[in-house]
Structure formats: C-alpha cells, structure tokens
C-alpha cells in the first residue's frame, strides 16, 4: 500500500475509470488546462484529450444540465463543481432533472452521473465558501450522497460512484485534499452504503463522516482513551443510503451515541440519524443521543470565530462525557 494524498487518490480513481470506460468524461471549471482548481485532475487532459476532460465556462446550471443530458443517452459524466457552494446555482438540474428522470419517465431513462467537488469549510473563506451541504442533497429522493473522509475511501467510493447507474452527489473535504494516508493500489472499490469502523470501542459510539473524522473525532477519541474511555468511531462514508445495520450494530454494542457533523443542526444528517436510532434502537440506549454540529450561524472570517463555529475536540469530549453521565 502506498501513501497518497486525498486529491491523488481521487485522481487515481478518475484515471482508472476513464481508462476502463470511454463513456466517462470529466467536465467542470478549470479541470483541463489548469489541471483542476484543487489539482484533482492533474495530467488527465494530456492523457484523455479535450473531449473527455472539458474546461467549462462558469455556468454551473448549464454544464450540470449538459451532463445530465449526456447521461440520459449512454455517457457517464463526472461533473466537477469547483465547490459545492457554487453548485447551488445548479440545484435545478440536479434536483429537478437528474433526481427525477428515472421516476418521471416511468423507468425508461437512467441517469448515471457523478457531481463531485469540495464541501465544508475551506479555511478562512467566510460564509459563501464554507458550507457543509450534504443534508440538502440527501433530502431529495433519487440522489445518492457520499462524503469520504480518507484517501482510500475517496478512491474506492469515487470508483463506485462512477459505475453506479444513478445520480451521485460526491462531496469531498476541501481541507482534506493534501491529507495523506494509505491507499490500496489498483482496482479498489468500496460499495456505496457501507459505513466503516475507523476505531473500535465499547463505551460510546461517535458517528461522523468527511473531514470531521480526522479533524476532531479521532483526536478526541485518542484523548478520551487516555482517560480510559473506549470510543467507537463509525465513519458513515455514504450519507444516503446510510448503513443502518452498521449504525444499529454499534449502538447495540455501546448503548451511547454522539453524532458529529460539520453542517448546521436543523434538519441535518445528524437529526435524521437520531431519529433512526431512537426508533430502531430505543431499548439499547442508555442515554439520549447527543449531537455536535456547526453552530446555527453563518461562517465568519476571523480565525477565532471560525474555530468556534465548527465542531471541536472539546465539544466532542463534552458530549461524550454527557452521554456517559460523567
């Protein structure tokens, strides 16, 4: 196994899938000659040519819809959004076209398309560039939503997303691109909808995904371990459909749950998980589910405010202590 940066793991996935399937093409802003705003597509233009790695104008709605149309007639587009904040402009085509085509056509059409790009806080970028939007997309029937937190998961899940026959929302961690970790070489595919225990434990389950995993959940678990508290870290990886069995199994084991997410608390992925857990695991719970989320405010620029708005190790430790009644 080689250590790869998250961005290079994504590039490997793109490269391998484009190599095995001529129907796959990449379109987005700065993906070709600039080699990607975050260098995820480095070198792909030279390898695959200008029809398969396409520099789009700044027209998110337009090229998102173009991708959906191409997917309707047998291609497998990967549409890169420079960030998910800009994809809000493309929401109509993602939600009203991609997510509904199979349904509205009574099963005549399919829409195998991946919309991918960075989400979450970018680091001192203020409100319009620092949003964790996975809950928005997870709300709509017809969309799958993936948010990997490690390089290996990024690779294995992007390959699955490209091979899937449905529209997939693939949200990368903007602050994860440079993060290195071990990635299996060659064909490595992770099924959509499977969570992963990133750290086994028996006292409390912390459920998370994307950047929060390495940014604060695993470090908090380490700190708690020093105090004798065994935290099980469950990385959801796929937001929709989420791995109900893995969640229930972990809750049955630890009887206590904390959910950590970067996004806002209202109508969030965490609130959906809480509902599932209280409904399906009521008798297994020894404490109410606690959530640690981004604060219900827009992101600030100032360094101290930005830190305060996001989940932190301290807030996670506090929540873990609360569900342990310590």
């Amino acid at each position: 196994m080689a250590e790869l940066a998250y961005r290079d793991a994504l590039k490997e996935a793109l490269d391998e899938e484009m190599g095995r399937d001529p129907r796959v093409f990449l379109m987005g802003e700065e993906v070709a000659r600039y080699n990607g705003a975050y260098k995820v597509s480095q070198g792909l233009l030279d390898k695959y040519g200008s029809a398969r790695v396409v520099d789009a104008p700044i027209s998110e709605l337009g090229f998102a819809g173009l991708g959906v149309g191409a997917a309707m007639v047998g291609l497998r587009p990967v549409i890169e959004m420079m960030t998910w904040n800009f994809a809000i402009l493309a929401m109509d085509q993602i939600v009203n076209s991609a997510a509904k085509l199979r349904h509205m056509s009574g099963g005549q059409l399919r829409c195998p398309i991946v919309f991918r790009g960075p989400g979450g806080a970018g680091g001192r970028l203020s409100s319009q560039h620092s949003q964790a939007l996975e809950a928005n997309y997870a709300h709509f029937p017809g969309l799958k939503v993936i948010a990997p937190g490690t390089a290996a998961d990024a690779k294995g899940l992007l390959k699955s997303a490209i091979r899937d026959d449905n529209p997939v929302i693939f949200i990368e961690g903007e602050l994860l691109y440079g993060q290195r970790s071990e990635v299996p070489a060659g064909e490595y595919v992770i099924p959509i909808g499977k969570a992963d225990i990133k750290r086994p434990g028996s006292d409390v389950t912390v459920i998370t995904w994307s950047r929060m995993l390495t940014a604060c959940v695993l470090p908090a678990a380490e700190q708690l371990a020093a105090k004798g508290i065994k935290v099980e870290v469950l990385d959801l990886r796929t937001i929709k459909p989420f791995d109900q069995e893995a969640v229930a199994a972990s809750v049955r084991k630890t009887n206590r749950v904390v959910i950590v997410e970067e996004g806002w608390p209202f109508a969030s992925v965490g609130s959906e998980l809480s509902d599932f857990i209280q409904r399906e695991c009521f008798d297994d719970l020894d404490a109410p589910v606690r959530r640690v989320t981004g604060l219900e405010v827009n992101m600030a620029y100032a360094a101290n405010l930005e830190r305060a708005i996001q989940p932190s190790q301290e807030r996670i430790i506090e929540a873990v202590n609360a569900v342990l009644y310590r």
């Binding site: 959906v68 149309g69 309707m72 007639v73 587009p77 085509q93 009203n96 076209s97 509205m104 005549q108």
Partner: peptide
C-alpha cells in the same frame, strides 16, 4: 417520455430542457 421514438421528455421547469438538449447533442458528437 417515449424513448422508443427518441422523445426525451417534457420538462416542467421553464427552460430546464435547454441544457439537457445540449447534453444529448454533446453525446452525439462525443
């Protein structure tokens, strides 16, 4: 929708079909 007769749909959001049609044409050229 009648895909057999290459009719790719009626769309309810005004103008929503305009980008989609470019996608069909993109695929043809591709």
């Amino acid at each position: 929708f009648d895909i057999e007769h290459h009719f790719y749909g009626g769309y309810g959001i005004v103008g929503g079909q305009i980008p989609l049609a470019a996608g069909l044409a993109f695929a043809s050229k591709y």
